[in-house]
């Protein structure tokens, strides 16, 4: 890793060797000064709780009194739980619906609002409004919109005679997950838009001009200039959205609480109920580590998809 640190060339005079060593130490000292505050916060407030919960996932983790070591019992319980399987399948359905929606629409909206246009600020704000509204509040609105008997969606569909009798949106597992995914996407498009907007500012205008001179169409410019130039941001957004899909919580917790009969269960709702309603903290922390491992696997796939073609790293 640190191939640039110390390079000994015995042919060099001692003074220059010393000078190199000194420069290398100074180089690293400066870098670690940059890292110090971030690492300190990370070790105390993040790493310690993570480690604690990892250790406790091998115990019965009673919230009071001494914990008992139970080996991998929590993990085998989680892995043999049919509801965990349902929960992960639902999370994957949520991901399949919500990630492309947010990624695609977020990028399109960002490209649309990148260039000057009348009302640009207002439009940007409208797309960003869902992002800043409280999760709890918007979930209640969606619950009302999709209510079977007096929801606005069924009322509209019946008014224009698309359907004759109301659809039970939230009583059917697949429909309920899709409703939650639509809610998540609605809330997330503005978020993705912001990141893409910021990234698009970094694409040098000269590249487009050069391409235009070469007679490249807009479509070609998009594929060969825009997308490659915001690769890191695409990667960031995708990784975060996939992570978010596996960590979907409030939407499901309020819309269905995992019901009917745990058919719309998702990993975090199940975990929350196990921990704070049933006091199975050991089970819950084992489940959270399983969630983490799955997200790591998905992220590795994304690292491979978005792997850089050239390194943008400064040597020395």
């Amino acid at each position: 890793m640190a191939k640039d640190t110390i390079v000994f060339h015995s042919a060099l005079p001692l003074r220059r060797r010393k000078q190199r060593l000194y420069r290398s130490v100074r180089h690293h000292a400066a870098i670690y000064l940059f890292l110090l505050p971030g690492l300190a916060f990370f070790l105390v407030f993040t790493t310690y709780p993570i480690l604690y919960s990892f250790v406790m996932s091998f115990t019965n983790w009673p919230i009071m009194g001494p914990a008992q070591f139970v080996g991998v019992q929590n993990y085998s319980q989680v892995l043999n739980d049919p509801i965990v399987r349902t929960a992960f399948l639902n999370a994957i359905l949520y991901m399949v619906v919500s990630v492309p929606l947010q990624l695609g629409l977020g990028l399109l909206v960002a490209i649309g609002l990148d260039r000057p246009m009348p009302g640009r600020t207002t439009l940007r704000l409208i797309y960003y409004l869902p992002v800043i509204t409280s999760w709890v509040v918007v979930t209640y609105i969606f619950q009302y919109l999709f209510n079977t008997d007096y929801g606005l969606i069924n009322w509209l569909l019946m008014s224009i005679n698309v359907i004759q009798s109301p659809i039970s949106w939230l009583a059917d597992p697949n429909k309920a997950i899709v409703v939650a995914a639509i809610l998540g996407s609605w809330k997330g498009i503005g978020w993705a838009m912001m990141i893409f907007l910021a990234a698009l500012q970094g694409v040098p205008v000269e590249l487009y001009e050069a391409a235009a001179i070469d007679g490249a169409g807009k479509w070609h410019s998009f594929w060969s200039i825009t997308l490659p130039s915001i690769r890191a941001s695409m990667f960031f957004v995708t990784v975060l959205l996939v992570m978010g899909a596996f960590q979907v919580f409030i939407q499901i917790y309020i819309l269905t609480a995992g019901g009917p009969a745990d058919q719309t269960q998702v990993p975090l709702v199940w975990m929350y109920q196990q921990a704070f309603a049933n006091l199975q903290f050991g089970y819950a922390s084992a489940l959270s580590w399983l969630i983490a491992v799955l997200i790591v696997l998905f992220t590795m796939v994304q690292f491979w998809i978005f792997r850089p073609r050239s390194l943008n790293v400064r040597e020395g």
Binding site: T47, Y48, I50, L51, Y52, V55, V296, T299, F303
Partner: peptide
């Protein structure tokens, strides 16, 4: 990113937290 092995990061993370973990637990 040079190496693509990601799981060792888990181990690194734990090693990093070991000291804080022990003092905190005490």
């Amino acid at each position: 990113m040079k190496g693509k092995r990601f799981l060792p990061a888990l181990a690194t993370l734990m090693a990093l937290g070991a000291m804080t973990g022990l003092t905190g637990a005490a």
